[in-house]
Each structure stands twice: as C-alpha cells, then as structure tokens.
C-alpha cells in the first residue's frame, strides 16, 4: 500500500484514502463549441500514458477532500512530487530528479 503525501493536510496517508483522477494538466476548454470533432476527441480520450514520470490528479477523498496533482514514476510507483491544483508541473531538472517526496 503506497503512502501518498497530501499537500493540503501535510501528512502521508495510505493510498486507500485517495482516489486517482487521471492525467493532470488537461484543462477543460472554456469554449468547447469552438473545438472541432478531432480536437474534442483529443481532449476527451487521448492521454500520454508515459513510461516514467507522469503528472496525475489525485483526490484525498477520505481526508480533506481536495484534489491535487502529483508526479509519479509509473515504473517504480514512486511519488516524486505533489503540488496544488492550478500550480505548474514542477521542473524536475531543477531539483535534480527524485529529490522531493
């Protein structure tokens, strides 16, 4: 059972307090009507699914209830960083890789 650091509560909690929310940084278009069918399908269904570091959404559903974002290595299952919804994806090259929690 993974431990996940909730940036809002400031504590590590077992993963079953959390719910996975899919890939992060896919903002809902402000004017969906302006999207053609191909663009809309892209928004709805296409995800990067990387082998390695992925930015994803999590919700501390059985805790503070907040959504937040996390960088997780899909190979090692290690959480590299967590950050608040709306914040930019942390630049790992600046911190020298798997530095943060």
């Amino acid at each position: 059972m993974l431990l996940i650091h909730c940036p809002c509560c400031g504590v590590d909690r077992p993963e079953i307090e959390f719910r996975y929310g899919g890939e992060a940084h896919i903002a809902r278009p402000v004017q969906p009507a302006d999207f053609d069918d191909r663009q809309w399908a892209e928004f709805l269904y296409m995800r990067t699914n990387p082998k390695g570091v992925m930015a994803e959404r999590w919700r501390h559903v059985h805790g503070c209830g907040r959504f937040f974002n996390a960088l997780r290595d899909t190979v090692s299952d290690r959480f590299i960083a967590v950050y608040q919804t709306g914040e930019p994806r942390p630049d790992l090259s600046a911190t020298g890789g798997e530095g943060a929690r």
């Binding site: 719910r19 809902r28 959404r57 919700r59 559903v61 209830g65 907040r66 959504f67 919804t85």
Partner: peptide
C-alpha cells in the same frame, strides 16, 4: 458528489 467536487475544485474554482 465526487463528479461535482471535481469540476468545482479543478475547473470552476
């Protein structure tokens, strides 16, 4: 409830 919270927190904060 989760669906509503999702949009509220992450799209229409």
């Amino acid at each position: 409830l989760a669906h509503m919270e999702d949009y509220l927190q992450t799209e229409w904060a």
